[in-house]
Design a protein around this nucleic acid. Structure first.
Ligand code: NAD
Ligand code: NAD
Lengths: 235, 235
DNA sequence: ACGCGCTTGTGAACGCGCGCACAAAGTCAG
DNA sequence: CTGACTTTGTGCGCGCGTTCACAAGCGCGT
């Protein structure tokens, strides 16, 4: 069916935009956050040798509303066929390209403690495009140690392992996080993922995301607390 | 101003429900997600023996807009003094109470692998209110092992360790996540934090949150990719 | 006692994101 | 070729969340 598409005559719009991915449209943050979700579902489908999938079915697999899915995908251009659905392989490559996963992206991890080791040994993101390339720690006792096939280097060597486009991951104690963050920025890192429970300050051109497990638990605690209060009222 | 509200004639709906704890105002999700952030900043202030703090300063410490902070706090009642600010200790106890952290909340962790061990040994949330109380795994070889002062039990014993109000944490491979999730729900758990990269299905009365490191990295990858494209254009 | 300056609490405007619902566009059978 | 059926792409209204801006409230110095 992909072949068939090439048989029909070209429309004017196609002649107007010959090849370039001219869809440099701004993609909403909310959409960007869901693209990895779709990608995961699509990979599962591809493993099952599924050729095409409807927005309804893919939305089900990704756990989102189908209209939302279609709108999301429309932001990267129109890649669906009405009456049929989306070509799984094509969609995978489009989303991967948009996320910048086509060429391998370097990740440097600072802080090889409990959490850092777990992350280093995790193959979950290594599977596609992303993988940790360097482990760094301030503890001289750890320097040289082999973890998950990588040699731990001293954090002072940061500048040597960072390449343009590298993503930095901070898994140090909170007290050291801002210092490490500054070092990363100075080394040229413009995207940072922070696991330490602290507010980090970065220059405007640096993207900063954080993961805080404690906060997640507290949010759940809140709802749990609310439920127990509700029970008290109804009882 | 709360007083003023009482001066105006009561509406029919208010007459209809006279006695409800109407201080039990619905707190927006976005606010709930920030309360732990404020709490963390407040604890740091308390350690420095700070008595009171203005919304401006606290907002700075928490990394949010001060107007947003004030509006958030106003949802749990008015606890600030104009011209002075908020009493740190009082605010800590108010937020803790609202989050249900006053009495200790039980957490059961299923899946004692790389990530599970890191979480088990983590003291970050144990410090206040939340702490892991039970470790469970399907691997008989792990049963009985001591980790972070807790004895690993078999996942079949789940119902024995769950108490009303327990929070469940899933750190198993994705393939086992839904099964474990179902077991948790059957044991009476109504709040679940999922680390496995899968979409989980739960009954409507169960709260489900997820943490996906891979997604975080992909989002950063997207922005990094965008930056490199922008450079290409300007260059 | 009284006004001055500081800080809170909130009204109001704005923008974003969500999801319904439907027309357009394509497939497929006969 | 035609008509029925399927699925996409999106216009639109709505509700939530953010932010500005300011009046009301409180402490303090005089
Ligand atoms: N372990 C968890 O499950 C968990 C969960 C949530 C958050 N966190 C957070 O993640 C961070 C790490 O947790 P952890 O349990 O792995 O702690 P950890 O103490 O086991 O490891 C911290 C590592 O960082 C290294 N380090 C310290 N200062 C450094 C510096 N300036 N530069 C480079 N490396 C430095 C230390 O040598 C150590 O190896 C903490 O901020 C913690 O709050 C951990
Ligand atoms: N390690 C990381 O840094 C990391 C990062 C992000 C996400 N994750 C996710 O977290 C999960 C765990 O990761 P990991 O690295 O700890 O994996 P792991 O393989 O090291 O550990 C998984 C553990 O779960 C246990 N298990 C398997 N089936 C079970 C069942 N039905 N009931 C109870 N226990 C069961 C296994 O015995 C094992 O001990 C995975 O889904 C992974 O994708 C891990």
């Amino acid at each position: 069916m992909t072949a068939r598409r090439q048989e029909r005559p070209l429309t004017t719009s196609e002649l107007a935009e010959p090849r370039v991915p001219r869809r440099r449209e701004v993609i909403p943050e909310a959409t960007v956050a869901r693209l990895p979700l779709y990608l995961r579902a699509l990979h599962a489908l591809a493993d099952d040798a599924t050729q095409t999938i409807s927005s309804e079915a893919l939305a089900e697999a990704a756990g989102v509303n189908s209209a939302k899915l279609r709108k999301d995908l429309s932001h990267l251009g129109s890649y669906g066929t009405r009456g049929v659905g989306y070509d799984v392989q094509h969609l995978i490559s489009q989303i991967s390209r948009e996320l910048g996963l086509s060429r391998r992206c370097s990740v440097v991890l600072v802080g090889v403690g409990n959490l850092g080791r777990a992350l280093a040994g995790y193959g979950g993101f290594a599977s596609r495009g992303l993988g940790i390339d360097a482990l760094l720690d301030a503890d001289r006792a750890l320097t040289g140690e082999q973890i998950a096939g990588l040699t731990v280097r001293h954090v002072d060597d940061l500048a040597e392992v960072v390449v343009p486009g590298s993503i930095g991951v901070i898994a140090t104690p909170a007290s050291a996080a801002q210092t490490v963050c500054d070092q990363l920025v100075r080394a040229g890192v413009t995207s940072i993922l922070n696991f330490a429970p602290t507010v980090l300050t970065v220059p405007a051109h640096v993207d900063l995301r954080k993961v805080d497990l404690s906060i997640e638990l507290q949010i759940l605690s809140f709802h749990e607390h609310r439920k127990s209060l509700a029970e008290g009222v109804t009882a």
